[in-house]
């Protein structure tokens, strides 16, 4: 691990200002993903700004009947929050499907959104990776590469990594908004839909945050009701990343929303696909995965996504 200096700051705006001022600085929240990557020298911050203790660890109710989740609320606390369990069960289900008990106790809401991909070529510093080292190439797109876990849609010729979060998939289906403080102290609201970027020619740019900008909250609109489910297909029964995950909200009239995890660089959802929900899983996936470019190793994800949704619809 590279040497770094460390500081605590007085409030979120001060944290953002400091992060913009110190070159090579990063925020430290739960640290579960950042420290892992620092040990491998994939992340090499020279300065860490510890944002723990800034009072961003509460879930409060908004005026329009929704929830405002502090960025430091742990995965465990959020999944166990009585209001989340009752009104946003897809979020509890998604969080409980991710990581391990120990990690969920430390991992935070903002950190979960900002976690890096688990693409094996991003992690293997002996291999090329356009995300880790822009311009070096994509190890996952070389002949004979292992791409079983990787993306099938929204990817590019430069990167086929997926966003690994379960929580974000549920938040996407719930129309969450990311709230930030910028280095000049302004509040900004970014719909989750626009928060994660597609790789294109710049896979190293992963989100809409400007340098120094700090996530302070994630807000959820008023509960939408319906039957809410999260199905995660993976290679072991627990503590593994999704091959495909499906977040589903279905209303009594058959309408609803669908978002996918494990297939793309961001939680994957479209209005056109949502509108097909009354017509069944095949109709939804025909729209949602239209234009997919899987590899030979991960083409099964297209079928798996459709079957997973079909199984969820058949359960009721």
């Amino acid at each position: 691990m590279r040497a770094f200096s460390y500081e605590k700051v007085a409030d979120p705006a001060a944290a953002a200002a400091r992060a913009a001022e110190v070159e090579g600085a990063k925020f430290l929240a739960g640290g579960t993903n950042l420290l892992d990557l620092m040990k491998l020298e994939i992340e090499t911050p020279v300065h860490l700004i510890d944002v723990n203790g800034l009072g961003l660890d509460e879930v409060t109710e908004t005026e329009d009947g929704g929830l405002r989740i502090g960025t430091l609320v742990t995965n465990t606390a959020l999944s166990a929050d009585e209001r989340v369990r009752r009104d946003y069960p897809v979020l509890t289900r998604a969080i409980a499907a991710g990581a391990s008990g120990q990690l969920r106790n430390k991992a935070t809401t903002g950190g979960n959104l900002l976690q890096r991909t688990r693409c094996p070529y991003f992690y293997d510093t002996a291999m090329p990776c356009n995300k880790r080292e822009p311009g070096s190439g994509c190890g996952a797109l070389t002949e004979g590469a292992f791409s079983r876990q990787l993306g099938v849609i929204g990817t590019s010729d430069n990167c086929i990594a997926t966003h690994p979060s379960d929580m974000a998939v549920a938040m996407r289906v719930l129309d969450a908004t990311v709230e930030t403080v910028t280095p000049n102290g302004m509040t900004r609201r970014i719909p989750l839909e626009e928060f994660h970027l597609l790789p294109g020619d710049t896979p190293q740019e992963e989100n809409a945050l400007m340098p120094g900008e700090l996530i302070t909250h994630v807000t959820l609109p008023a509960p939408v009701g319906g039957t809410q489910k999260y199905h995660k297909a993976r290679d072991r029964a627990s503590y593994a990343f999704a091959l495909v995950s499906v977040a589903l909200i279905r209303q009594p009239d058959g309408s609803g929303r669908v978002a996918l995890g494990g297939v793309a660089p961001k939680p994957w959802r479209s209005d056109e696909a949502d509108a097909e929900l009354p017509n069944g899983a095949r109709a939804v996936m025909a729209h949602l995965l239209e234009g997919a470019r899987p590899t030979e190793e991960n083409a099964f994800k297209i079928t798996l996504a459709e079957r997973a949704l079909a199984a969820m619809l058949a359960e009721e």
Binding site: A3, F4, S5, E7, A25, V46
Partner: peptide, 17 residues
């Protein structure tokens, strides 16, 4: 140790290690 780093500005810690 920090002194063994590459020497570029961005690789030097901004304070105590």
């Amino acid at each position: 140790p920090a002194s063994a780093q590459d020497g570029a500005a961005a690789s030097t810690p901004a304070g105590d290690s």
